[in-house]
Structure formats: C-alpha cells, structure tokens
Design a protein around this nucleic acid. Sequence first.
DNA 1: CTGAAAGCGCTTACAG
DNA 2: CTGAAAGCGCTTACAG
Lengths: 346, 346
Amino acid sequence: MRSSRSFPTLEDVAKAAGVSTATVSRCLNTPDRVIKPTREKVMKAVDALGYTPNFGARVMAAKRTFTIGAIIPTMENAIFARGLQAFQEELHRHGYTLLVSSTAYRPELEEEQIRALVARGADGLLLIGYDRDPALNAYLHQRAIPTLIAWAFKPEIPKPAIGFDNRAAMARLTREVLAQGHRRIGVISGIAKGNDRAAERLAGFAEALGATGLDLRDMPVIETPYGFENGENAMIRLMQTDARPTAVMCGNDVLAAGALRGARALGLAVPQDVSVTGFDDIELARIVTPPLTTVHVPHREMGTKAAIALIALVEGGDSLPPTDLGVSIKRRESLGPATPRDEQAG
Amino acid sequence: MRSSRSFPTLEDVAKAAGVSTATVSRCLNTPDRVIKPTREKVMKAVDALGYTPNFGARVMAAKRTFTIGAIIPTMENAIFARGLQAFQEELHRHGYTLLVSSTAYRPELEEEQIRALVARGADGLLLIGYDRDPALNAYLHQRAIPTLIAWAFKPEIPKPAIGFDNRAAMARLTREVLAQGHRRIGVISGIAKGNDRAAERLAGFAEALGATGLDLRDMPVIETPYGFENGENAMIRLMQTDARPTAVMCGNDVLAAGALRGARALGLAVPQDVSVTGFDDIELARIVTPPLTTVHVPHREMGTKAAIALIALVEGGDSLPPTDLGVSIKRRESLGPATPRDEQAG
DNA sequence: CTGAAAGCGCTTACAG
DNA sequence: CTGAAAGCGCTTACAG
C-alpha cells in the first residue's frame, strides 16, 4: 500500500542537512538565492534520502500544477494525434505535463471534460475550434483559466487562437478545382453542426463557387462523419446520380481516401473519370493511389506553437492575438482537368 | 491573474450552510454518511457559491490524484492513438484523468518521463512493453506506483500486463506465408533494440522458420524505424538483390504500406510478383491496394481493458496476472502463393 | 543569505 | 449523524 509507507519530506531533508525547510525549498526552486556551500549540503541530503517533492503539497502551496489540459475530438484522427504529440513534446521541454481528454466528436461532452480538467488543476487549456456554449465561456472566464483555441483561426474573434483559416483554405482549393474546368463539383463534408472547422470549409467552398457565378445549392453535398467507409459510401451515392460531378471535394483526407475506393468500386478512374481532393495532408494522402491533391496543414507546427503560446498565456497572464499559420495546396495526381460530360457518362 | 482572485473554499460553504467543514466534505465525498436535510442544505450552499474543490488541497489530504499516467512511444502511430483513446474514455468513465507523455521511440527518455508523471502525482502508470532498466523497475517498486504493462504479454514474467504474444502472433503469420509455398522470405522489421515488441516479432518469424527447417540467417532482414518511406526504401533494397524474396513480411502495417509502394515503383505486382504482409491491422491495412494480409490486434479492447485493470490495481492494490488478449490473422489480397523463381526473375 | 512561522484548503480518525 | 481539531508537506512573505 502506497499510503502506509511514507517518503522523506522536506523536513527530513532539512534536518539531515541541518538547515530550515525554507532553505531546502529554495535550493530546489530558486537555487541562486542560496550560497553554494549550503546548496551542496542540501543537495547531498536530497540525494542521500532519495527525496522527491510531494505533488499535492507543492500544488497547494504554489497554486500551480504545471499541468496543461487539452480537449480534442479524438486521438484516432491523425491530425490531432500529430498535433498533440508535438504539443506534448513542447510542453515537456518546458516542464509541463499534458492532461488529455477527448469528446469522441460529441460536443456536448466537452463541458464535462473541461470541468474535469479544471478540477484536476490544469493551469491552462487547449481547446479545438470556437464553437462553444456561452455559459462555458463564462465559466472559463470566471475561473480565469488561460485558454487557447487551436485548429481554427477567425481574425474577427479576439481570443487567443492558433490555427489557420479553414474557409480561406477551402476557397483556395476550390479555385484550383474550378481552374481545371470543373463546373459540377460534389462535396463530401464532415458533419458541420458543432464543428466549426467543417462548417467553415463548406463556407469556403460556397464562397469560391459564388465568385465564379456558381451556386452551392446546385451542387450535390453529402455530410457524413469523418471515416473511411463513410467517404466510400458517399462517393458511391454521388456517382450514381444522373448528373454526376466531375470532381468531388472531401472534408478531409480520410473521407477522400474512402472516395477513392468508392470510385474504384464503380470502375471509375481518378482523375480521368472523376477528380478527388482531400484536406489536411496527412501521411495517408501520399499513400493512396492516386496520391491526393489536398490542403497541407502544418499540424506539428501548430502543436508546437500552441504549447509555446499557451505557456506564455499561463505564465505571462496577458492575452495573445490570434495567429494564422497559413496553409498551402499540395498538388498531386487525384485532381485533373474536367472531362466533357458525355464522354465520361460512357 | 488567477491567484489574486480567490474562490470560495470549503469553509465558506460550511459557514453559509451552518455546518462544519467535515460535514461539507462528507456531502461531497461520501454523501450517504450525511442525512438528507443536512445534505440538501449543504448542496444549496455549494451551488449558491459556485464552489469547486481545490485540487491541490484535496490531493494533499487524500493522497490521491485520480490521475493515471501513460507513457507511449508516440501518439502518431495509429495503434497507440486508438488504444490510448479507448484507455482515456474508460478512465473518464471511472472519474480518472489521463496524463500522457511520449518518448518519440527513444527509450532512454522513458525514465525521465516516468519520473515526471510520478512527480505529478500519477496514481498509476501505463507502460508499453517489458524492456526497462532494472533500476527503473526498482524505483517504481520503491515508490509503490501501480504499473501495468500493455501491448505486450509474456506469460513467464509475473507482472501485471495486458496485451498479446507478439512472438506467437508473428510465428502464426509466418506459417501462413510458408503454407503458400514461400521459402525465401524477406523481413522489414522495426528497430528491435529497445523495443521488445519488434524483437519478439522477429523471434516469432525465426521460430516458425526453424520449425520448417529454414534458417533466419538465410533470409534478408532489414531493420528500420517504423515509417512509410522507410518501408518503401527497404522494399526497393530487398528486391534489387540477386536472390529476391517471393514474400516480404513487415513489422507493422505502415512499413507494409511503404513496401507496397516500393513494389509498385519497381513495377512488381503484389501478390503476383511478391507477397507482402503487415502487422496491427490499422485502418490503413484496408485502405491500401491491395489490402494487406496482417495480424489483427484489438487495440481499442486493449486500451479499455488496460484502464479497467489499472484502476483495479490502483484501488485494490493487489497484483493481477498477465492477460493475453489474443490476435487473429486477417487474410486479404497482399499475400498469395509463391511464384517459381525463374518466372518472376523475368 | 537564512530561519521561524503562518498559511494553503482539504480529509479523516476520534469523540460524542 | 456531526463537529473540533490535527495533519497532510510544501511555499513564501517577513524579519534579521
């Protein structure tokens, strides 16, 4: 049993070294405020006793846990896994530890998770996207928990955020698709409700369309949870209609990988019969055949910068302007020129 | 500033409700030990003040954090991401929070991470595999931190573990490959040093080979860090030798996906010219062309059961026997019968 | 540069 | 069922 055996305390060390507990504490936390001989005596005692500070006591006295909480939709999606990995590595470098929780893409669970992490003493919080109940924002504000929003960036919202403009990115990719002559473009989107990144991507699509005089309402759009099989099924549905799209833009790479397989199941060649695009540029985008034209998002960079920004927030206390990481378009084989309708209808 | 504003304390609640702090504490932690009228009075005060327990104080007094630490090689590998996701979901269900740290596949970092999580007050630890410095094991034992090993299972080692027998699994898959007539089999393995799972897979391969009168030393084996491009390069190297293997077994699915692309780069058809197998059965195994024959590992189940077992260890205190989850072989198109040497040499 | 001492906000035997 | 009080092990003004 853990509690029955007791570990050496600061006081034990102080006694062994013949100093006060205050001095031991200083040796450990602010060593330059102690002269060298004293410090050496103390450190020797620390080593001899195998002393480790008691976490709870330290937290209570210092009112900080050096712990950062992150709440993400899921670790199973490579984009969050990579970003979170980089986030954790950077936190570790600064002496912080990561507390994680996931909502499994059920936004209604987020509040409970936030409260749990706050109750666990998280010094700061990393949250994905802006969509949130005002009451929750009020709670966060009242508890004065530094919070950073990642994976999204809206210049008009004055909250600390680090990410990229999903809408602008999708608009850019759409313009590339339009430039290839496509005029009938299908969309396989993630569920937009409760996911502002998905909603923004759809909005960006509509925006680029509008600029060319086209209308979103004329395009076949399917919303489906992110997932390989869902992409496959959606693709099959889209291509079995009378007015087949010549290009299908997907809400992320996983959906696009599924769409590729859907096309194959239908005997359609990509991009000759139909073009496909993704979003995120995860490893999968390079692995599938043909490789995906997609939006490259710097996930690791986002994670690293998010860690730095959040620590600054926690330690500095003052707010940070939203920062836009920017994305680029990765041109690969899955996007080609539009094929005249009659030819492809075969 | 967080520290300047102070939140209501237990004592504030006690005063507001006209009871002692002990009673408030009981209402929150062991409500059945308080009669209903008292409890209602207290809860009303809790709500009115918006009271939340102070984490540090609670930890110090209770000597528990309700926090579990996990140290994994990386979140970027889907197998750990999925398992950890399930692990976290189950922990959450039991009121525990997950603290994560990763070694980026550098085993020498593990000790530091373990100490950091212990210092953060983790009530228990999830560790991957058995390979560990004896001094570290001694430290864990001395601190009396309940520890569970996952992703591996060795019946002969009497430590709490939950996983599967990597060696037996690889031996089984090898027998399938042998049954297809392959006698010259290449291996693209993960780095075995410091990774007992990779080492065991290699050992399982050798074992099955030996049972058929073949010898590992006659087979071309490449060790390389897990990674798509590494698999691709290794495959190209293997197939450019004089004595080409007719089948290539890979240490995991990511390497196998790379091998598939390497084969394609060389103009080799899979499985007609060369068979390829994977390990893990992540989503990718179904996505690539052709889909991979691989070992199916129940990652989510492992995560969920690991959480349950570790909580039992933390709360019960007594040890658990190692449990074997078992794996199955997924037969897909990437494995086919061996082709006569002269034919394929072309 | 160092020490005595208060205080952080809970939990939990121990009484009653 | 409830309360008074000790105690958990640190940190940090405040003196000196």
